[in-house]
């Protein structure tokens, strides 16, 4: 049994929030560098040049890459041999969000009473927190701020099992087509297949954490990812929806067994500011 004070979790969350919003991942930067040569559309190439310049300024000036610094989505994997001390875990995560967003000059984008007064909570809390118990005595924290523009274009369908794989492909491609320029392409597309209504959305969100260019270890799913990527790029939407060959940076599929009556599919759309940072305590 190992003791970890929840104050350390607050501190880590605060640091991850700022790092995620200011420092674009090396996988995304590498994609931009290669894309600025590969993209056939001239305006598309200029978009990639701006995004690379933007990432450089953000990192140097410690400014957010995007003004929409998102909803604070936090994944906690807690070792079952860890004893958390010093207070309430969820309150500690929110305290980290509060500190990171205030001290890091990040935008507070969360409102209470969503279909009424829509009053800003003032500190970007509460976080959306996903906890999972795992073997071991460590705590892994992943911070993945999620912007509103791309989240708004995400979708979920409870398909009929008889519709099968073709319907899964069509639903993903249609969702990307509808997102068009609104979701700030080139996109990362997280796809969940199977499970229940809430599980499939979680799978799609989790899929967004994968590294750009990585393939699903299951060959059947890797083939599906390749096909989806090609079909999405054939849409011609291109960088920022201005027309071009590169509409998606990657498509990631995560799968779970489904009920005999169900074929749930969720598509979580991520803009090109594919932000996530993690730390292990």
């Amino acid at each position: 049994m190992r003791e970890i004070d929840v104050a350390r979790i607050s501190e880590a969350v605060a640091q991850l929030a700022v790092a995620a919003c200011c420092d674009l991942g090396e996988d995304v930067l590498a994609f931009f560098r290669s894309a600025q040569d590969r993209e056939e559309s001239a305006v598309g190439r200029s978009v990639f040049r701006q995004l690379l310049e933007n990432a450089r300024i953000a990192a140097e000036e410690r400014m957010p890459l995007c003004q929409d610094t998102g909803f604070a989505v936090v994944f906690l994997e807690i070792g079952q041999d860890v004893h958390l001390v010093g207070g309430d875990l969820e309150a500690a995560v929110d305290e980290g969000v509060r500190r990171g967003y205030t001290e890091g000059y990040l935008r507070k984008s969360v409102v209470a009473d969503p279909f009424g007064e829509r009053k800003n909570t003032g500190d970007n809390t509460p976080a959306v927190l996903h906890t999972r118990l795992v073997p071991g005595e460590q705590v892994r924290i992943v911070f993945a701020p999620k912007g509103g523009g791309a989240e708004n274009m995400s979708a979920l369908a409870m398909l009929k099992p008889a519709q099968g794989r073709p319907a899964v492909v069509d639903f993903v491609v249609d969702t990307v087509a509808k997102a068009g320029p609104n979701a700030c392409p080139p996109l990362v597309v997280g796809v969940g297949v199977g499970g229940t209504f809430e599980k499939v959305a979680y799978l799609a969100k989790k899929a967004l954490l994968r590294e750009i260019g990585s393939l699903n270890p299951v060959p059947r799913l890797a083939r599906l990812e390749d096909e989806l990527e090609a079909r999405c790029n054939d849409l011609g939407i291109g960088p920022q929806g201005l027309g071009g060959r590169i509409t998606v940076m990657d498509v990631f599929v995560e799968e779970f067994p489904a009920h005999i009556a169900s074929l749930p599919v969720a598509v979580n759309i991520q803009c090109h500011a594919a932000r996530h940072k993690e730390v292990v305590l």
Partner: peptide, 13 residues
């Protein structure tokens, strides 16, 4: 007009 979504640090300059 469209500005490049997500190029927010560059646009701030």
């Amino acid at each position: 007009f469209a500005a490049v979504g997500g190029a927010a640090a560059l646009l701030a300059q």
